Computed example of a mutant assay.
Amino acid sequence: MSHHRPDTLVHAPLGRESAYPEDYDAGLLYPIERAANRAPLGIEAGALPFVGEDEWHAFEVSWLNARGKPIVAVARFRLPADSPRLIESKSWKLYLNGFNQTRFASQEEVVATLERDLAEAARAAVGVELFGVDDAVLVPKRLPGECIDDRDIEIDDYTPSAEHLRVGEEVVEETLHSHLLKSNCPVTGQPDWGSVLVRYRGPRLDRDGLLRYLIGYRQHQDFHEHCVEHIFMDLMARARPERLLVLARYVRRGGLDISPWRATPGERPPSPLRLARQ
């Protein structure tokens, strides 16, 4: 598959050798305009066809307290889908590493600093929560609904094709999921492994076709957020459901995992969950 660095990432740290910072520096965050990647899907900035968030977990968060003693935590960030910008993942990691040798008077100061810097980069309010590494909220859970991965199908197409999406006449309300989602980083080509959940009310989806479609992302190069938006738009166009939620939970890389979800207005994802593979 052809590989090139998108124009929006020419100066990004992703795919480049980087010195890890020892000092806090909000300037390390590298924002990327969402509009360029949404345009090919027919998504206009002022009229999004979905609601949603990009939920991030950072497992390598540490800082020094006022006396120089290290504190460690796991962070959950929620970046709204209607923010003009997303934040490139390696720059986010480098930024967080700048906290490692920085003193903060309290955890509240850490949260306030993160909220301020991330909002400036994304041009929207970003939710920030910090958890202890043994916090019960981080215990892995399972995706709800029926897994479609055991279907005995033959595959010879590893690029996304909405032609695989077919529906019947019966209107149903159901939740399906697959752990066979894989896409590739658009810059480094590294594999991004994930699980995807589809919850909808509308004409019944053909499960063989849905699985073929999802597996079609296996050689697709794009960011996690854009893959989820691509899936959402294709399902809306081909299946025309009354309600739809698409949620992907990607395996962590570099201490960060990204779990975007997009939905028709009024839909919400299941309560916060983290899978064992994350």
Rank of each mutant, 00 (worst) to 15 (best):
residue 99 F to L: 08
residue 178 S to Y: 00
residue 153 I to E: 12
residue 182 K to G: 03
residue 270 P to Q: 01
residue 273 L to R: 12
residue 263 A to R: 00
residue 255 G to C: 10
residue 207 R to E: 04
residue 203 P to M: 02
residue 94 L to F: 05
residue 143 L to V: 13
residue 134 D to R: 07
residue 199 R to V: 01
residue 14 L to Y: 06
residue 3 H to P: 05
residue 54 D to A: 01
residue 275 L to M: 09
residue 37 N to L: 07
residue 124 A to L: 05
residue 109 E to L: 11
residue 267 E to V: 10
residue 85 R to C: 14
residue 220 H to Q: 12
residue 3 H to N: 10
residue 127 G to M: 12
residue 114 L to P: 07
residue 223 F to D: 00
residue 250 Y to A: 00
residue 127 G to E: 15
residue 258 I to N: 08
residue 180 L to G: 02
residue 28 L to E: 07
residue 108 E to V: 14
residue 105 A to F: 04
residue 10 V to P: 06
residue 233 M to K: 14
residue 253 R to Q: 10
residue 85 R to Y: 14
residue 29 L to E: 07
residue 200 Y to A: 02
residue 104 F to Y: 11
residue 152 D to R: 12
residue 58 A to G: 15
residue 28 L to Q: 11
residue 186 P to K: 10
residue 116 R to M: 01
residue 18 S to W: 10
residue 29 L to A: 01
residue 249 R to C: 01
residue 93 K to F: 08
residue 238 R to M: 13
residue 87 I to R: 03
residue 90 K to M: 09
residue 176 L to W: 04
residue 122 A to W: 06
residue 255 G to E: 04
residue 189 G to D: 12
residue 121 A to W: 01
residue 230 H to A: 04
residue 57 H to W: 05
residue 56 W to K: 01
residue 47 A to N: 15
residue 53 E to G: 03
residue 103 R to H: 04
residue 275 L to H: 05
residue 97 N to E: 14
residue 113 T to K: 09
residue 221 Q to K: 13
residue 201 R to G: 07
residue 250 Y to T: 08
residue 87 I to L: 09
residue 158 Y to V: 15
residue 268 R to F: 05
residue 79 L to I: 15
residue 248 A to G: 10
residue 174 E to A: 00
residue 16 R to L: 10
residue 67 R to D: 01
residue 42 G to S: 09
residue 61 V to Y: 00
residue 131 F to L: 09
residue 278 Q to C: 11
residue 108 E to L: 11
residue 185 C to N: 13
residue 114 L to C: 10
residue 218 R to Y: 02
residue 247 L to A: 06
residue 82 D to I: 07
residue 52 G to R: 06
residue 177 H to R: 05
residue 101 Q to T: 12
residue 153 I to A: 09
residue 207 R to V: 03
residue 190 Q to N: 12
residue 103 R to M: 09
residue 207 R to S: 02
residue 170 E to F: 02
residue 194 G to H: 08
residue 179 H to W: 06
residue 141 K to V: 05
residue 173 E to Q: 10
residue 183 S to N: 07
residue 126 V to E: 12
residue 220 H to D: 10
residue 135 D to A: 14
residue 204 R to T: 10
residue 11 H to W: 07
residue 190 Q to G: 04
residue 257 D to I: 03
residue 185 C to M: 10
residue 130 L to E: 09
residue 133 V to R: 15
residue 83 S to I: 07
